[in-house]
Amino acid sequence: MTASEYRVLPGPEGYLPPAAACMGVTLPEPGEALVEGKIVPEEDALQRIAEKLLAARNPVFFPGPLVLWAWREGVAEKAKAVLELVEAAGARVIPMPDYRPKYPMINPAVEINPNHPNLTIWHNRIDVGVFVGVHCHYANVALKIIRGGTDCYTIALCGEMGHEDAMITLRSVDTAKLRRLTEAVKALAQAGLPRAAGEHGRR
């Protein structure tokens, strides 16, 4: 396949734009990552994520059920690695505890839901959002809605093959890779990247 011309950039992209996969964006092979619709070496993507996180005014992590609940061996450790990254990035956490359409509605201040993630983005004025531990289908649905309706820069740390509709996606993300990303963030922070003004920090 030839590389796609289609760029995956922050929205609002408009009224029900197509999924990036239908515009020729393909998922990365092992060792690679996707940055704004282009395949790049994974290391480059780690760097870009670090830059984006540190430059963000209000970066927020959205951990999903796969890391929120201690359902199998290794989750607690992975969760810890996520939180180290959150800490290093000076980000907040808003969880996605489940995927159901909630009645009467979600409280966008404290949670995010894949069926209407835009509410949480708008409410909290999130400029960089990071998905981790969300089942791929729901992550893809959410990422598309966010790109369609908001200007949030989305990053997906995927345990499987990644997500075309995120501006940056890593694939096969395990605890070790999370730690590598944390290191990249810390290194960049030490180098003194200027940070945008705005309130942040963990709740």
Partner: peptide, 23 residues
């Protein structure tokens, strides 16, 4: 509107998944 959009996005993800199958 929000549910319609979620529904539509879900369908787009089904189409996208078929695209990924090409590889």
């Amino acid at each position: 509107f929000i549910s319609y959009l979620a529904n539509a996005s879900w369908h787009q993800e089904v189409i996208a998944a078929a695209e990924r199958a090409r590889k």
